[in-house]
Nucleic acid binder design. Structure first.
Lengths: 158, 158
DNA sequence: TGAGGGTGAGGCGGTCGGGCTGCATCGTTG
DNA sequence: CAACGATGCAGCCCGACCGCCTCACCCTCA
């Protein structure tokens, strides 16, 4: 699933709870602890996006499988974000090194061919990446349309 | 504190507990969970190194201040190690990029000066880092001499 | 050399708080 | 009015920690 709807709140709390396999009250608690921040409708109803549900599933995985508590989940989420950031930077760095090697060969070749022994300015190599390209900002706000469906609650917990 | 003694077990459990501000039973529990692995003497007595104590203090910080449980501590320690590794690799990468830039200038200059237009082999640039340099292996094993001192237990917890 | 104190190892149970769920109450909507 | 969401409160379960017990080993001393 991709598209602008991924970060727009569309699920009411019962739907988000069903999708993430959690109790609605648990979702409210997570919000109170700052672990998740669903949008709110004009009538103060929580609206969970697909990204919110994904985050909830990630939290569910950490708490259920990993046995982490909420403080641990918070810390781990931050650290994982840092790891992703550094990994992306490393990839960019590697790519930049390879590019530099190519340019180096090309430059040497050019200088070799040139009878006029003129140096080229190396400031041209300052690609200055600094990070992966940011995605475009989301679409302008349209009034969200919450999903209201019939939910049959199954026995939770185990 | 540095030196070969940092990774050699010298503290008995009561001393390590006092230094880390924990209950001896807690230290045994940590070992049972794989959070810490002190050495053992020939008589099966736990011997904690200074590095062990530092790790215990780090755990103490995470559990007491951060409120993490042991599963969270385990995950966070692994992630932090990964972050440190990646950070070191990034530094090496940056250093390598700078070095490459210097060599590039030098090579171009050399080619420019050279009347014979002969290419230099670029395989010479394959530094092939792959990671930070490993530290030297520890000193050969000398029989550990446990520290036995009189301990006055204060009221823990709080 | 045998007795006693001190300490560590390992196991068991109690205590306290975090995390989760159930329930009650009220507002909103179709 | 039936269904659902928001909020607050109370109870339950388990993880984390600590105290205590027993046994084994080391050191000291008569």
């Amino acid at each position: 699933m991709s598209g602008p709807g991924r970060i727009r709140g569309v699920f009411m709390i019962s739907v988000a709870a069903e999708l993430s396999g959690m109790h609605p009250q648990t979702l409210r608690m997570y919000e109170a602890r700052g672990l998740i921040t669903p949008q709110r409708s004009a009538k103060n109803t929580r609206l969970y996006s697909q990204a919110d549900v994904d985050r909830l599933l990630r939290i569910q995985e950490m708490t259920a499988d990993g046995g982490l508590n909420l403080a641990g989940v918070e810390t781990v989420l931050e650290l994982e974000a840092e790891v992703r950031r550094m990994s992306a930077e490393l990839d960019a760095m590697r790519e930049r090194a390879a590019e530099m090697e190519r340019r180096m060969a090309a430059e040497v070749e050019r200088v070799r061919r040139s009878s006029r022994a003129e140096m080229v300015p190396y400031g041209a190599y300052e690609a200055r990446g600094g990070g992966p390209p940011r995605p475009a900002p989301p679409a302008p706000p349209k009034p969200p349309q919450p999903v209201r469906i019939k939910i049959v609650r199954k026995h939770h917990g185990g």
